[in-house]
Amino acid sequence: MPRSGAEARRRLQQAALELYRERGYDRTTAAEIAARAGVNERTFFRHFPDKREVLFDGEADLRDALVRAVEEAPGDLAPLDMLLRAFRTAGRILEENRPFTEPRLAIIAVTPALRERDMAKAASLVDALTEALRRRGVPGRLAGLAAQTGWGTFHHAAQAWIDDPSQDLETHLQRAFTDLRALSGAAPSAQDRARTQP
Protein backbone atom coordinates (compact mmCIF):
# COMPACT_ATOMS: atom_id res chain seq x y z
CA MET A 1 0.00 0.00 0.00
CA PRO A 2 1.47 3.44 -0.92
CA ARG A 3 2.50 5.40 2.16
CA SER A 4 1.99 8.91 0.84
CA GLY A 5 -0.42 10.81 -1.37
CA ALA A 6 2.35 11.57 -3.85
CA GLU A 7 3.32 7.90 -4.04
CA ALA A 8 -0.31 6.82 -4.54
CA ARG A 9 -0.71 9.41 -7.27
CA ARG A 10 2.43 8.22 -9.05
CA ARG A 11 1.35 4.58 -8.83
CA LEU A 12 -2.12 5.41 -10.15
CA GLN A 13 -0.59 7.20 -13.12
CA GLN A 14 1.74 4.31 -13.86
CA ALA A 15 -1.07 1.77 -13.50
CA ALA A 16 -3.31 3.76 -15.84
CA LEU A 17 -0.54 4.01 -18.40
CA GLU A 18 0.06 0.25 -18.29
CA LEU A 19 -3.62 -0.63 -18.55
CA TYR A 20 -4.34 1.85 -21.34
CA ARG A 21 -1.48 0.33 -23.31
CA GLU A 22 -2.58 -3.25 -22.60
CA ARG A 23 -6.36 -2.93 -22.98
CA GLY A 24 -7.00 0.49 -24.43
CA TYR A 25 -8.48 3.49 -22.66
CA ASP A 26 -12.13 2.61 -23.35
CA ARG A 27 -11.84 -0.89 -21.89
CA THR A 28 -10.15 0.25 -18.66
CA THR A 29 -12.06 1.36 -15.56
CA ALA A 30 -11.01 3.54 -12.65
CA ALA A 31 -11.52 0.53 -10.35
CA GLU A 32 -9.07 -1.52 -12.43
CA ILE A 33 -6.51 1.28 -12.33
CA ALA A 34 -6.89 1.50 -8.55
CA ALA A 35 -6.52 -2.27 -8.16
CA ARG A 36 -3.38 -2.33 -10.31
CA ALA A 37 -1.93 0.50 -8.20
CA GLY A 38 -2.73 -1.31 -4.95
CA VAL A 39 -5.28 1.24 -3.67
CA ASN A 40 -9.06 1.37 -3.48
CA GLU A 41 -11.32 3.16 -5.96
CA ARG A 42 -12.08 5.91 -3.45
CA THR A 43 -8.37 6.74 -3.34
CA PHE A 44 -8.36 7.02 -7.13
CA PHE A 45 -11.14 9.61 -7.04
CA ARG A 46 -9.46 11.47 -4.21
CA HIS A 47 -6.58 12.14 -6.61
CA PHE A 48 -8.30 12.36 -10.01
CA PRO A 49 -11.82 13.42 -11.01
CA ASP A 50 -12.00 10.87 -13.84
CA LYS A 51 -9.88 8.35 -15.70
CA ARG A 52 -8.92 10.86 -18.41
CA GLU A 53 -7.33 13.24 -15.94
CA VAL A 54 -4.75 10.66 -14.83
CA LEU A 55 -2.77 11.44 -17.98
CA PHE A 56 -3.04 15.21 -17.56
CA ASP A 57 -1.75 15.60 -14.03
CA GLY A 58 0.60 18.54 -13.61
CA GLU A 59 -1.08 20.72 -16.25
CA ALA A 60 -1.59 23.56 -13.76
CA ASP A 61 2.08 23.38 -12.73
CA LEU A 62 3.13 23.43 -16.38
CA ARG A 63 0.91 26.44 -17.10
CA ASP A 64 2.34 28.30 -14.11
CA ALA A 65 5.91 27.53 -15.20
CA LEU A 66 5.24 28.72 -18.76
CA VAL A 67 3.57 31.93 -17.62
CA ARG A 68 6.33 32.64 -15.10
CA ALA A 69 9.00 32.15 -17.78
CA VAL A 70 7.26 34.68 -20.06
CA GLU A 71 6.86 37.13 -17.18
CA GLU A 72 10.54 36.83 -16.24
CA ALA A 73 11.91 37.01 -19.79
CA PRO A 74 14.24 39.94 -20.55
CA GLY A 75 12.32 42.98 -21.77
CA ASP A 76 14.13 43.24 -25.09
CA LEU A 77 13.02 39.82 -26.37
CA ALA A 78 10.52 39.50 -29.21
CA PRO A 79 7.30 37.59 -28.39
CA LEU A 80 8.44 34.37 -30.07
CA ASP A 81 11.73 34.51 -28.17
CA MET A 82 9.83 34.93 -24.89
CA LEU A 83 7.82 31.85 -25.80
CA LEU A 84 10.88 29.86 -26.83
CA ARG A 85 12.35 30.66 -23.42
CA ALA A 86 9.13 29.43 -21.77
CA PHE A 87 9.00 26.25 -23.84
CA ARG A 88 12.56 25.42 -22.86
CA THR A 89 11.26 25.29 -19.29
CA ALA A 90 8.44 22.96 -20.36
CA GLY A 91 10.92 20.91 -22.36
CA ARG A 92 13.00 20.22 -19.27
CA ILE A 93 9.88 18.95 -17.50
CA LEU A 94 9.07 16.63 -20.41
CA GLU A 95 12.64 15.33 -20.62
CA GLU A 96 12.71 14.54 -16.89
CA ASN A 97 9.50 12.53 -17.35
CA ARG A 98 10.23 10.88 -20.71
CA PRO A 99 9.35 7.33 -19.52
CA PHE A 100 5.83 8.67 -18.84
CA THR A 101 5.67 11.33 -21.58
CA GLU A 102 6.36 9.09 -24.56
CA PRO A 103 3.70 6.39 -23.96
CA ARG A 104 1.26 9.06 -22.73
CA LEU A 105 1.47 10.91 -26.06
CA ALA A 106 1.05 7.65 -27.96
CA ILE A 107 -2.10 6.76 -26.01
CA ILE A 108 -3.59 10.23 -26.49
CA ALA A 109 -2.92 10.05 -30.24
CA VAL A 110 -5.13 6.97 -30.68
CA THR A 111 -7.90 7.82 -28.18
CA PRO A 112 -10.58 10.35 -29.25
CA ALA A 113 -11.72 11.13 -25.68
CA LEU A 114 -8.14 11.89 -24.67
CA ARG A 115 -7.45 13.93 -27.80
CA GLU A 116 -10.48 16.05 -26.94
CA ARG A 117 -9.20 16.61 -23.41
CA ASP A 118 -5.71 17.35 -24.76
CA MET A 119 -7.12 20.02 -27.09
CA ALA A 120 -9.02 21.63 -24.22
CA LYS A 121 -5.88 21.67 -22.08
CA ALA A 122 -3.88 23.13 -24.98
CA ALA A 123 -6.48 25.89 -25.44
CA SER A 124 -6.19 26.74 -21.75
CA LEU A 125 -2.39 26.93 -22.00
CA VAL A 126 -2.59 29.12 -25.12
CA ASP A 127 -4.99 31.47 -23.31
CA ALA A 128 -2.64 31.70 -20.34
CA LEU A 129 0.34 32.43 -22.60
CA THR A 130 -1.67 35.03 -24.53
CA GLU A 131 -2.49 36.83 -21.28
CA ALA A 132 1.15 36.64 -20.14
CA LEU A 133 2.30 38.20 -23.42
CA ARG A 134 -0.34 40.93 -23.14
CA ARG A 135 0.92 41.78 -19.69
CA ARG A 136 4.39 42.14 -21.25
CA GLY A 137 2.97 44.75 -23.64
CA VAL A 138 2.34 42.59 -26.73
CA PRO A 139 -0.89 43.82 -28.41
CA GLY A 140 -3.83 41.43 -27.95
CA ARG A 141 -4.18 40.22 -31.52
CA LEU A 142 -0.45 39.59 -31.85
CA ALA A 143 -0.24 38.00 -28.41
CA GLY A 144 -2.90 35.47 -29.38
CA LEU A 145 -1.26 34.70 -32.70
CA ALA A 146 2.16 34.31 -31.09
CA ALA A 147 0.82 32.03 -28.34
CA GLN A 148 -1.06 29.78 -30.79
CA THR A 149 1.84 29.63 -33.23
CA GLY A 150 4.36 29.08 -30.45
CA TRP A 151 2.33 26.26 -28.91
CA GLY A 152 1.98 24.55 -32.29
CA THR A 153 5.72 24.84 -32.83
CA PHE A 154 6.44 23.43 -29.37
CA HIS A 155 4.08 20.51 -30.04
CA HIS A 156 5.84 19.88 -33.36
CA ALA A 157 9.23 19.85 -31.62
CA ALA A 158 7.98 17.48 -28.89
CA GLN A 159 6.72 15.03 -31.50
CA ALA A 160 10.03 15.24 -33.37
CA TRP A 161 11.81 14.46 -30.07
CA ILE A 162 9.59 11.41 -29.53
CA ASP A 163 10.28 10.25 -33.10
CA ASP A 164 14.02 10.96 -32.90
CA PRO A 165 15.33 10.57 -29.33
CA SER A 166 18.95 10.68 -30.53
CA GLN A 167 18.78 14.46 -30.04
CA ASP A 168 17.50 16.22 -26.95
CA LEU A 169 14.28 18.21 -26.89
CA GLU A 170 16.20 21.48 -26.70
CA THR A 171 17.75 20.74 -30.11
CA HIS A 172 14.38 19.87 -31.65
CA LEU A 173 12.82 22.97 -30.09
CA GLN A 174 15.53 25.28 -31.38
CA ARG A 175 15.25 23.76 -34.87
CA ALA A 176 11.45 24.12 -34.91
CA PHE A 177 11.59 27.81 -33.96
CA THR A 178 14.36 28.44 -36.49
CA ASP A 179 12.18 26.76 -39.14
CA LEU A 180 9.22 28.89 -38.08
CA ARG A 181 11.25 32.05 -38.60
CA ALA A 182 12.44 30.76 -41.98
CA LEU A 183 8.86 30.08 -43.04
CA SER A 184 7.84 33.62 -42.12
CA GLY A 185 10.88 35.11 -43.83
CA ALA A 186 12.04 36.60 -40.53
CA ALA A 187 15.72 37.02 -39.92
CA PRO A 188 17.18 34.65 -37.31
CA SER A 189 17.40 36.12 -33.83
CA ALA A 190 20.76 36.97 -32.30
CA GLN A 191 20.42 33.82 -30.16
CA ASP A 192 19.84 31.67 -33.26
CA ARG A 193 22.87 33.18 -35.01
CA ALA A 194 25.06 32.61 -31.95
CA ARG A 195 24.02 28.95 -31.80
CA THR A 196 24.87 28.32 -35.43
CA GLN A 197 28.37 29.82 -35.21
CA PRO A 198 31.21 27.24 -35.27
Rank of each mutant, 00 (worst) to 15 (best):
T153I: 09
A122T: 11
L180I: 13
R136H: 11
R134I: 14
R117Q: 10
D163M: 10
D164K: 09
A78F: 07
L169Q: 01
D164E: 04
A37V: 09
A31P: 00
R42T: 03
A30W: 04
A65N: 11
A158C: 13
R52T: 03
H156Q: 04
F177E: 05
I108S: 01
V39K: 03
Q159Y: 02
R135A: 02
R92S: 03
A30E: 05
P139D: 14
R135P: 05
Q174L: 12
E131G: 10
M1V: 08
E18W: 06
A113R: 12
P139E: 13
T178Q: 11
H156G: 01
P2I: 06
V110L: 08
G137A: 05
T89E: 07
Q14E: 07
R11Y: 13
A158Q: 15
R181T: 15
L105C: 11
R175E: 11
L145Y: 06
R98M: 08
F44T: 00
A157K: 01
A146V: 08
V67H: 14
A35S: 04
I107P: 14
L12P: 01
L77H: 11
G91Y: 04
T101Y: 14
S184Y: 09
R117M: 13
R68T: 14
L84R: 10
F100V: 15
L173S: 06
R117F: 03
L173P: 01
A120E: 12
A73T: 10
P188Q: 12
T130K: 09
D26M: 04
L19G: 04
A113P: 06
L17Q: 15
E95H: 09
A37F: 07
T149I: 11
A158H: 15
A143L: 12
L105Y: 12
A194S: 12
F100T: 14
A106F: 05
E71L: 08
Q148R: 14
